[in-house]
C-alpha cells in the first residue's frame, strides 16, 4: 500500500506539471461536442435526444489523448524500467496510473456537462447520479485504456493502435453509460437505471482486476 501511495504521489506531481495538457484535452472535448451539434442542426428535440450519446463520444475520443499521454513522462526518461527495477510491484504502478487517468476523465466529463446543457438544451435533474454514471463510465475507459497505453506507447503507429484496440472493447461502457445518462436526462419511468449502473459496475470490476493482473506480464522484460 505504501508503494501505491508513493506511486500516486508521483502521479500527483506529474499532473500538476501537465496542467496545460489537461486544459488542451478539455478544449478538445468541448470542440468535439460543438462539432457534433452541427451534425444535428438546431432541432432542439433531436439535440436533447442525442446529447447523452454525444457527451460520451466526446469523452471517448478525448480519452485517447489522455491515455496516450499517460506514460509519456515515464517513456521519455526511461523511468519505467527504473521504477520496475526498484522492489516496487508493477501493480502499484498500474493502479496509480489507472486511478490518475480515471480522475482526469471524470473531471473532463464533469467539465463537459455544462457545455452539453447549454448546447443541447439538456435537462439536468439528478446531478449526483450523473456524476456517479460519469465516474463509473470513466473507470471503464481508464482500466483497459491504461493497459493498452503501455503496450502501444512503444509500438509504431501508436496513435492509431490505441483507439483501434480500445474502442471495440469499451462498447459495453458506451452503451451502458449513454443509456444511463439518457435515462437520467430524459426520464426513467421504469426505473431501469439500476441495471445499467450494475452493468457498468460489473464491467469495471472485471477489468480493474483483470488488467491489473495482466499488467505485470506486459511490462516484464
Amino acid at each position: 500500500m505504501r508503494q501505491l501511495g508513493a506511486a500516486l504521489y508521483k502521479e500527483w506531481l506529474l499532473q500538476s506539471r501537465a496542467l496545460a495538457q489537461l486544459l488542451a484535452v478539455l478544449v478538445f472535448g468541448a470542440t468535439a461536442l460543438l462539432l457534433f451539434s452541427f451534425a444535428v442542426g438546431p432541432n432542439y428535440e433531436l439535440l436533447r435526444a442525442v446529447a447523452p450519446g454525444f457527451l460520451w463520444l466526446a469523452l471517448l475520443l478525448s480519452s485517447t489523448l489522455t491515455l496516450a499521454e499517460s506514460f509519456q513522462a515515464e517513456m521519455e526518461h526511461r523511468a519505467l524500467e527504473g521504477q520496475l527495477l526498484l522492489p516496487a510491484s508493477p501493480w502499484a504502478l498500474y493502479y496509480a496510473k489507472a486511478l490518475a487517468n480515471w480522475l482526469q476523465l471524470t473531471l473532463l466529463g464533469v467539465a463537459l456537462v455544462p457545455l452539453m446543457v447549454a448546447l443541447y438544451d439538456a435537462r439536468l435533474s439528478r446531478p449526483l447520479a450523473l456524476l456517479g454514471v460519469i465516474a463509473l463510465g470513466s473507470a471503464g475507459l481508464s482500466a483497459p485504456g491504461t493497459l493498452y497505453a503501455v503496450m502501444t506507447h512503444q509500438a509504431r503507429s501508436r496513435q492509431t493502435l490505441l483507439p483501434l484496440l480500445l474502442f471495440p472493447l469499451v462498447v459495453p461502457v458506451l452503451i451502458a453509460a449513454v443509456k444511463a445518462t439518457s435515462l437520467l436526462m430524459l426520464g426513467d419511468p421504469m426505473e431501469q437505471i439500476g441495471s445499467w449502473a450494475l452493468l457498468l459496475a460489473t464491467f469495471d470490476a472485471i477489468h480493474w482486476s483483470l488488467c491489473g493482473l495482466l499488467f505485470g506480464r506486459v511490462v516484464e522484460e
Binding site: 483497459p144 493497459l147 493498452y148 503496450m151 484496440l165 471495440p168 472493447l169 462498447v171 459495453p172 452503451i175 451502458a176 443509456k179 441495471s195 445499467w196 452493468l199 460489473t202 464491467f203 472485471i206 477489468h207 483483470l210 488488467c211 495482466l214 506480464r217 506486459v218 516484464e220
Partner: peptide
C-alpha cells in the same frame, strides 16, 4: 506474443459483456 495474448484474453472475456449489453439495449 505476450502483449497479443493479453489483448486476446481481455477481448474474449469482454464478449459476453458485449452480448448482454447489446441485448438489453
Amino acid at each position: 506474443a505476450t502483449w497479443s495474448a493479453v489483448a486476446t484474453i481481455i477481448a474474449y472475456v469482454d464478449v459476453p459483456i458485449v452480448y448482454f449489453s447489446v441485448r438489453w439495449w
